[in-house]
Simulated scan of single mutants.
Amino acid sequence: MPEGDTVFAAAARLRKALDGRVIDHSQFRVPRLATADLRGRRVTSVRSRGKHLLIDLGPGGPDDRDDRPLSVHSHLKMEGAWHVHPVGTRWRRPAYQARVVLRAEGQEAVGFELGVLELLADPDAALAYLGPDLLADDFDAAEAIRRLSADPARTVGDALLDQRLMAGVGNVFRSEICFLRRVLPTRPVGEVEVAPMVDLSRQLLWANRLRTARSTTGQTSPNARMWVYGRRGQWCRRCSTPIARDHMGPVGEDRVVYFCPACQS
Rank of each mutant, 00 (worst) to 15 (best):
Q97T: 10
A126L: 03
L119C: 13
V87T: 15
V22Q: 09
A207I: 09
G252K: 07
Q107K: 08
A153K: 11
D19Q: 14
G252F: 06
A150V: 13
A128P: 11
W206D: 10
L119I: 12
G170E: 05
E79P: 00
A9W: 12
S149G: 13
H85K: 08
A195E: 15
I177Y: 00
R245I: 14
A36Y: 04
R68Y: 10
A11Y: 00
S71V: 07
A213M: 15
S149Y: 11
D254L: 03
V251T: 13
P152Q: 11
F139Q: 06
N208Y: 00
Y229I: 02
D151T: 08
N208S: 10
T220C: 01
C260M: 07
I177W: 00
G249E: 02
A36D: 10
G190T: 05
G40P: 01
E176G: 01
G233P: 02
G111S: 05
A11N: 03
V257K: 05
H25M: 04
S74N: 04
G40C: 04
D122G: 05
E113I: 00
F259C: 06
H25C: 03
R32M: 12
L127Y: 12
G218D: 07
T89P: 07
D162A: 13
D5Y: 02
E193P: 03
V172T: 09
T212H: 08
C263Q: 11
T155V: 07
R225L: 03
G20E: 04
M248V: 00
R13P: 00
T44Y: 09
D151S: 06
L200Q: 00
M197R: 10
P94M: 00
R21A: 12
V256D: 08
H85D: 11
I145R: 05
D246N: 12
